[in-house]
Write a protein that binds this DNA or RNA. Structure first.
Lengths: 207, 207
DNA sequence: GATAGAAAATGAGTAGACTCACTTTTGACT
DNA sequence: AGTCAAAAGTGAGTCTACTCATTTTCTATC
């Protein structure tokens, strides 16, 4: 690097901070690239460290476990995807149809790589280390908020937050039995639709 | 061992098989003991092999992963617990109360060791290796069957298998947010009760 | 610009799950 | 009893996530 210059003074407010951010970005980029090219299992933490041009130990200053790296890599993208899905104007009339549309698009996101999806979903609900907890909570909150908003907008359901919670649980199980149980996606989604319709029915204002 | 004798002939139908079963039993006993005394994380596969008096390699002939051992150890007990719970005569009138009673007793089973419970629940839904799949499926089937039977017995719900599936998903999420999310158990169970009540409402015969 | 102390980085080292080339045991057949 | 192939068993060795004692880099203060 070029030495001296005005940099030294100008950087005073936070050279360390900037370095950390830049390093973090390199780690995430390297991890993403390797995970997508070789898969999670066949990528070693050494490879990631090497690709990010840092020492092995440094990697674990930024991610407490290998699984944390997965969350670091996909959190932003998933968060954005979820927000985009819920920001879109509704295309169907019924609330159950709208929920299904959202869940279908969320499932689409996981369609290319079932193994990766399984790992991500596992981390989302039963995290391997609690280091990334706040990241995960933010994502879960975005999902719950999106669902709650959608349900509340319909106006005919009694307690939107509760129904949002239930709906996500049903979606999660549908997704898992598709990705892991070897069940057909269509079958899982049809079942989910039925479950959601009944869920909504049980939560009408006028029960 | 005593050589010769009539054993050699009498054992013909299955000495190998008996040896395997006996060895398997030793492994399960050793694993149970160590997991309960030291916890899953602090128990090494070496220790288990040693305690079961077999070689390291042999252990992995019986369990493909360390997590498989967990399933081997607790499957029978959980299966029996679940069957016992659902075999008992109902104590409450409403179906939602009866479901809650069953889930509460299932949760009780996990109350002493939250870490172990989290691991077991994780394996149950997102298995680490698919080697124990049939074991897990049997347990899941027992749960679904028990729930379906209970719901069907009530007679006022439209499609018992579907509702059983939904109910378990809700129970699972309640349990996880109790065990992992640090949420208060009472709070989780109260929420679950409300979710179940609404679930039942939405699935009445006369909707 | 020298100094000190804090923060960050490092990579050789550790530990433990899992493998595999080889040995031993088993049981059917003669 | 002897032979053989297949099944089961073995533990030294591998691979890799993660640690920790040490070194390097930064920044605040004089």
């Amino acid at each position: 690097m070029t030495p001296g210059k005005t940099e030294e003074k100008a950087a005073t407010p936070g050279r360390r901070e900037r370095n950390k951010l830049e390093k973090r970005a390199r780690i995430v980029a390297a991890a993403r690239d390797l995970f997508q090219r070789q898969g999670f299992a066949d990528t070693t933490t050494q490879q990631i460290a090497e690709a990010a041009d840092i020492g092995t130990g440094t990697l674990f200053l930024y991610a407490h476990t290998k699984e944390d790296l997965l969350v670091m890599v996909f959190r932003d993208e998933m968060l954005e995807t979820v927000r985009r899905i819920f920001a879109e104007p509704p295309v169907t009339a019924g609330i159950d149809g709208r929920l299904m549309a959202a869940f279908t698009r969320m499932a689409d996101y996981h369609a290319d790589d079932a193994d990766l999806a399984r790992l991500l979903l596992k981390e989302l609900v039963v995290p391997h280390s609690d280091a990334r907890r706040s990241d995960i909570d933010e994502l879960m909150d975005a999902i719950y908020d999106g669902l709650t908003g959608m349900i509340a907008a319909d106006g005919r359901v009694r307690s939107p937050p509760l129904v949002a919670r239930s709906a996500f649980a049903l979606y999660y199980f549908a997704l898992i039995s598709w990705l892991g149980g070897g069940q057909d996606r269509g079958w899982c989604m049809r079942l989910l639709r039925e479950q959601l319709t009944n869920l909504i029915d049980g939560n009408r204002q006028d029960a």
